[in-house]
Write a protein that binds this DNA or RNA. Sequence first.
DNA 1: GTCTATATTTAGATAGAC
DNA 2: GTCTATCTAAATATAGAC
Lengths: 212, 212
Amino acid sequence: MSDLPPGGPPAGTGTTARRRGRPPRTESADTRDRILTAARDEFSERGYEKTSVRGIAKAAGVDSALVHHYFGTKEQVFEAAITQSFGPALQAPKAVEEGPLDGVGERLTRFFFGVWENPATRAPLLAVVRSAVTNETAAAVFRRIVATQALRRIAGRLDLPDAELRAELAAAQLVGTAMLRYVIKVEPLASADTEQIIARLAPVVQRHLTEP
Amino acid sequence: MSDLPPGGPPAGTGTTARRRGRPPRTESADTRDRILTAARDEFSERGYEKTSVRGIAKAAGVDSALVHHYFGTKEQVFEAAITQSFGPALQAPKAVEEGPLDGVGERLTRFFFGVWENPATRAPLLAVVRSAVTNETAAAVFRRIVATQALRRIAGRLDLPDAELRAELAAAQLVGTAMLRYVIKVEPLASADTEQIIARLAPVVQRHLTEP
DNA sequence: GTCTATATTTAGATAGAC
DNA sequence: GTCTATCTAAATATAGAC
């Protein structure tokens, strides 16, 4: 809308000349975000193949050409949306991995369902799961999540044989539950109380990780 | 593995006039089967959305119009391919559910990996998993498999509270492992020895099902 | 920065010839 | 029973106007 005069700082007078930091993109930072959020939601609901750039654009209230203008190909839109989503809330807090080893099963299980029960953090995970079964980019992200969440951070502390395999089988229990509960929606699991599920899974995860 | 012998006499042989039973479809029974097998393989490798009817036709060595001629829409091709695939080898044998309860964890786990390690029986399962995350028909099949394999047949015998939930969490452990091993291919799980995995999972499955 | 217009490709589905 | 030809719809992606 209101155009910046191209080139130098605004000829505008008396006001403070605060032209530092990143050059303003008018209101496009907003638009960029709206597109990425719309993309994240579309990918999470439909998966990679079924999602169209046009659908993303529509959901964001812009034209599809603009989506391409910002991010390039559909694949790059996916990458951008996922990358942005995984910045903030998806790293397991240090408390999960740093506490006493014999409570790690419950802490990890609790953290896992905390993330999945929150619609905002569930969306990017759904996007990855729904896309990873047929899209290699998403599969790579999936692998990275499993590796960084389960392996580097926890398996490293286990002083047991097959530490990595153990961590992955624990992850498999959690991932499989998420799959059946949030994606396939198998009953009664899909409607079961979270605490009840955690109560059943925590000892199993613990067992995978520490049982000699 | 070994295909069921088709009901009627083979098309080519009979010189004698045995015109009874179903009217002959010349060699089309062959073609039908080739199409369904090709469909099963395409769906298993690419998932529902990414698979095209043209791709199926090409793999079967026929024209895409013929695929429609036999089966109708793409959705119906999927249904036919899955239905055929799940006739023979995918029911858990009675031994799995009928033996002593305290060995059911190992028997079920062994059966599960037996099916997944066999390329012929793995294909339709991959097709369902790859498709179920975005396709409701496939999701319904998935649900039915979990229900009939895990629930009706085993949970019914458990004299414990939350028998169904228990069975589904056991299924989640197995499904999650298949997901990470065969679909996402997370290492070292993807290359691990089957016996090693079974040794770790069987007691966990057992625990889900019978631990008081 | 944002949209209109369009080139290009690919897919699902059907009619009809042989 | 099988294929050729074709209609129709949708998608990715780009060029260029405003």
